[in-house]
């Protein structure tokens, strides 16, 4: 099929940037989105043009490296997928596809479609861990965890750190991201010990890094490729109040 692409090109963080239009005549519906972009880049190289930069690594929706704003939606029109899992069969012949990088104060653009998401690492560094030093662990079955709570922890723990939640939020808030980690550890007995400190340091760090606050629009939940639930934010808020009043 024939596709027109409007791709955000920006030389560096300092550069103003803008859209550049490319036409593709031979896009297969069997391609994934990054395979389509690869194919355009191959053509650009052959035509002596400089290819555009975009991040992509595992190509199976688990590493969280990719992430593009496609036609005004993070990761495009398909539900519950990362950009690398998006199929070109979601588009039709003649479509124009607009591709932008994540837009958030905490995620400055590095080049073209590549942004700096190290702020997410800093959030985890602020307390997104259980301080179990190597060698100090007790026998695994000495800590029984109900299946229900274990499943809640797993569902929160599947976050891939892609930044979709931040990109989809009009406030560029990282609430879904930190609440997933806070929830995962709040429901597990192993994580309770540090629960009070964790929620406070993570929230403080989120504010310090320039992420916005949560106004409960639910865009993050709607767009999260791993379908992480808004209820994690509610749980985090409870944890936060508990930490403040106890």
């Amino acid at each position: 099929m024939k596709i027109t692409l409007k791709i955000w090109r920006q030389e560096s963080a300092q550069d103003k940037g803008g859209f550049v239009t490319y036409k593709m005549d031979d896009v297969s519906t069997e391609m994934t989105f990054p395979e389509m972009l690869d194919s355009l880049n191959e053509d650009l190289i052959k035509r002596n043009e400089v290819p555009f930069a975009f991040d992509s690594d595992c190509r199976e929706g688990i590493c969280g490296m990719c992430g593009l704003y496609i036609n005004g939606r993070p990761n495009g029109p398909q539900e519950g997928v990362t950009t690398c899992q998006l199929n070109m069969s979601m588009f039709k012949d003649g479509d124009t596809i607009t591709i932008e990088p994540w837009r958030a104060k905490a995620f400055p653009v590095i080049k073209d479609l590549v942004v700096d998401r190290t702020a997410l690492d800093k959030l985890i560094q602020a307390g997104g861990f259980i301080s179990a030093k190597t060698g100090a662990a007790p026998e695994a079955n000495a800590i029984p965890v109900s299946k229900e709570e274990s499943d809640i922890a797993f569902d929160a723990g599947v976050c891939i750190g892609c930044g979709t939640c931040v990109a989809s939020c009009k406030n560029a808030s990282a609430m879904l991201f930190i609440s997933a980690k806070v929830s995962q550890f709040a429901v597990l007995p192993q994580g309770r010990v540090e629960a009070k400190e964790r929620v406070q340091t993570m929230v403080a760090q989120m504010d310090a890094l320039g992420f916005g606050n949560c106004t409960n629009t639910g865009a993050c939940e709607a767009e999260c490729p791993k379908e992480i639930k808004l209820s994690n934010i509610a749980r985090m808020n409870r944890e936060f109040y508990k930490a403040k009043i106890s």
Partner: peptide, 12 residues
């Protein structure tokens, strides 16, 4: 043991 203590939600 290490992973469970670190909060890995293995199947139960």
């Amino acid at each position: 043991d290490q992973y469970v203590a670190s909060g890995v939600p293995f199947a139960r």
